[in-house]
């Protein structure tokens, strides 16, 4: 099998670029916890969500000086979470699960974009940089009311 000289150059360059790119993606993802996408391997009984902690008490809770946890239950076609209000500049750990089908929990203008799967708990940590009222929406098809499934989170000045 014969390789043309230009082809060798082209492929060498291409593969080198690939290695560099993957290293950057990998290092930046794993060096900083906030940069890994939504996930987690915790499970939950989808029929007993409302009896299982922390989903028995959804809402925002302060964990320590700099960390908050927002616990939210997704269901067709709404999010159960009273008073979504968090301070700017503090780490917020979002925890979600679903009582029925798959949904998403997506906050516009942020990189919070979580798939919410029944039987699983999805976790994502995020620190808001700007105060304001952010639109939360479901971007995974969940039924006729999918496009009416939304909420709002208020990020307050300290």
């Amino acid at each position: 099998m014969h390789l043309h000289k230009y082809e060798k150059i082209w492929m060498t360059f291409g593969i080198a670029a690939l290695v560099v790119f993957l290293s950057i993606v990998g290092v930046s993802a794993f060096s900083h916890e906030q940069h890994t996408p939504a996930g987690g391997i915790e499970t939950i009984d989808p029929e007993k969500v409302k009896e299982t902690a922390p989903f028995n008490e959804p809402g925002v809770k302060q964990l320590d000086e700099d960390t908050y946890q927002a616990t939210i239950v997704a269901m067709a076609f709404a999010y159960e979470a009273p008073e979504l209000k968090v301070p700017v500049g503090k780490e917020v750990i979002f925890k979600l699960t679903s009582t029925d089908v798959v949904h998403s929990f997506t906050i516009d203008n942020t990189n919070v974009n979580m798939m919410v799967v029944p039987g699983q708990v999805t976790t994502k940590s995020y620190t808001f940089k700007e105060p304001g009222k952010y639109l939360i929406l479901c971007n995974e098809y969940c039924g006729t009311g999918h496009h009416y499934m939304f909420a709002e989170i208020e990020v307050t000045e300290e």
Binding site: L22, V25, G26, T36, G39, E42, N113, V117, V121
Partner: peptide
């Protein structure tokens, strides 16, 4: 973006 798969396996398949 979903739970149930560890980051290791996600990244492995990305590579």
């Amino acid at each position: 973006m979903e739970p149930g798969i560890s980051n290791f396996w996600k990244f492995f398949q990305v590579v």
